[in-house]
Amino acid sequence: MSRGLTFTRLADLAHPIGTGMPRWPGDPPVTFLEVACREEDGYDLRAFAMGEHGGTHVNAPLSFLPGGADVRAAAPWPLLLPLAVLDLRGRAAADPGAHCAPDDVLAWEAAHGRVPRGCLFVCNTGWHHLWREPERFMGVQWGALRAGPGDAPPMVFPSFTPDAVHLLVHERGAAGIGIDTHGVDAPDDAEFLCNRMALAAGAVVVECLAGLDGLPPTGAHALLAPLPLCGGTGAPVAVTAFIP
């Protein structure tokens, strides 16, 4: 509020954390364990466990870069950033492997002006609507269509291209990139180039965003507050949008 931020409504851009939610292959599932109950202890208490990159989360440089900062040192949290939202839903509906490429960023600028310096640039692919269908969210069924005989089906979902990330963080000065799929990188990019490029430039990376449909292309702000995990390679993050 000290910046004179005004808004008419708030929106939660993080998915609820629960068992059965989509997760990267090999990541641990979300588990809950009853530790105390009111009948015996006078209060209810559960322990829970999940991967640091589960649910709506930020990635820390430590996850991809030698000597990188952990999640606590990655940014001056909580972080308030202007939001720029690219609507990729139409193309992603026709092609589950659609990419946000430099031409998409330039087309966005032709319609809405130059990408604001210091913004969080987010792709709305519509994938957040598949959150309750983990196999569809991870694109396993589309991968099965592309797999050869006897091959394990790869994952297929929309993402950024490294060239688009370079344009955003190096040429436009974006402070972060985000997407509503499980990765800013294409799932077949074993080098995670988009993550590496953004994090090496000091930008924030947010994945598995929710609730993007109600956001305007410009004018909103996002407040990001991850769990301050000591040594965290990433962390679940609360993301609140302030919408004018």
Rank of each mutant, 00 (worst) to 15 (best):
Pro22Thr: 10
Pro25Asp: 13
Pro25Glu: 08
Pro25Tyr: 07
Val30Pro: 02
Thr31Gly: 04
Phe32Leu: 09
Asp44Glu: 13
Leu45Trp: 13
Arg46Leu: 14
Ala47Thr: 10
Ala49Met: 12
Ala49Pro: 01
His53Lys: 12
Gly55Thr: 02
Thr56Ser: 12
His57Lys: 00
Val58Phe: 04
Leu62Arg: 08
Phe64Ala: 03
Phe64Gly: 08
Leu65His: 03
Leu65Asn: 02
Leu65Val: 09
Gly68Lys: 07
Ala69Val: 09
Val71Arg: 03
Val71Ile: 10
Arg72Trp: 02
Ala74Thr: 05
Ala74Phe: 04
Pro76Ala: 12
Pro78Cys: 11
Leu80Met: 11
Leu81Met: 04
Pro82Ile: 08
Pro82Tyr: 08
Leu83Glu: 00
Ala84Val: 10
Val85Leu: 12
Asp87Gln: 00
Leu88Lys: 05
Arg89Asp: 01
Arg91Ala: 14
Arg91Gly: 05
Gly97Glu: 14
Ala98Arg: 11
Ala98Lys: 03
His99Arg: 15
Cys100Val: 13
Cys100Gln: 07
Ala101Lys: 07
Ala101Thr: 15
Asp103Pro: 06
Val105Ala: 10
Val105Gly: 08
Leu106Arg: 12
Ala107Glu: 11
Ala107Gly: 11
Ala110Asp: 12
Ala111Lys: 09
His112Pro: 03
His112Met: 10
Gly113Trp: 05
Arg114Val: 15
Arg117Gln: 15
Arg117Phe: 14
Gly118His: 08
Val122Pro: 01
Val122Cys: 06
Val122Ala: 05
Cys123Gly: 11
Thr125Arg: 01
His128Ile: 01
His129Ser: 03
His129Trp: 03
Pro134Phe: 01
Phe137Pro: 00
Phe137Asn: 00
Gly139Gln: 06
Trp142Asn: 15
Gly143Leu: 09
Leu145Asn: 08
Leu145Gln: 12
Pro149Glu: 09
Gly150Ile: 09
Gly150Asn: 03
Gly150Lys: 04
Ala152Thr: 11
Pro153Leu: 13
Pro154Ser: 13
Pro154Asp: 12
Met155Trp: 09
Phe157Thr: 00
